[in-house]
Design a binder for these strands. Structure first.
Lengths: 137, 137
DNA sequence: CGGTATCCCGGCCGATACTG
DNA sequence: CAGTATCGGCCGGGATACCG
């Protein structure tokens, strides 16, 4: 229920609240992000994706894709062949989201050193190690 | 280790890989997203944030903020007063990310019905319920 | 008021093994 | 090759109680 409901304000709060949860559902998965951005490169079959994402288990790939399909972000087309072949592709909806996600991905890429520095300054041993490794290279 | 390392290709893969994990670390938290976007409204104290985010426990708020501070996305300033007062504010770095996150948030807001429809079509009972409730209003 | 420590559960996710 | 079923560990995160 929407608690702080002043007149005329209710729906916006509701939308905010609802949207937030949707966003969380969409992003929360460990692999969702990688899968979506990987699919930006175009229609792709299962094995291809698995190779791109590197580290994902067949189970999680399948599971993630089903989740995305469930939300209408990814379309799945099965070809009646032997051996079986399945293609995945971003829908128009998914494409929009993927674009936004990619922005964040790019941002993250460009600021990795900066963030790493902050972490190291705050005593994160892993970050310090990474920085040292990067410096040594 | 980077497995599929062709010459000259290694570093990009490394960057991608590294960035991906950073992104995941940044976004994975259930509350990170909400906290960051909430902070977009400006400097704010703990209790204020707790009210804005609605549903977050003190523990998770604290924990999330510490994580963000750790990465240099949020600055924390303590005022020597009684009762104690602490302000949180996005850093320049955090502001950048917040802008991007907000894009996704807005996108999600605008596409809630669409996604809900997809989910309902795929037999998600909760989505069906929500749609019915929205329709009845 | 702001923050932490402790307990504990649900579910995410990985590994493995198996069907079509 | 695509996908599922099952088991199990791990940890995110909620509730509660407690310090400065």
């Amino acid at each position: 229920m929407v608690t702080n409901a002043t007149e005329g304000y209710t729906f916006d709060v509701f939308k905010r609240h609802c949207a937030s949860h949707m966003v969380l559902d969409l992003l929360s998965g460990k692999w969702t992000y990688l899968t979506v951005t990987a699919l930006r490169q175009g229609r792709m079959r299962n094995a291809e994706l698995a190779r791109k994402i590197e580290g994902i288990s067949p189970k999680m790939l399948s599971q993630t894709l089903r989740g995305l399909e469930h939300d209408g972000l990814v379309s799945r087309t099965v070809h009646a062949e032997v051996p079986p072949r399945v293609d995945y592709e971003l829908t128009a909806l998914g494409e929009e989201l993927a674009g936004l996600m990619d922005q964040i991905c790019i941002w993250a890429q460009n600021h990795v050193p900066e963030i790493l520095t902050h972490r190291a300054a705050n005593g994160d041993p892993e970050a310090q190690e990474r920085l040292a490794a990067a410096g040594a290279r």
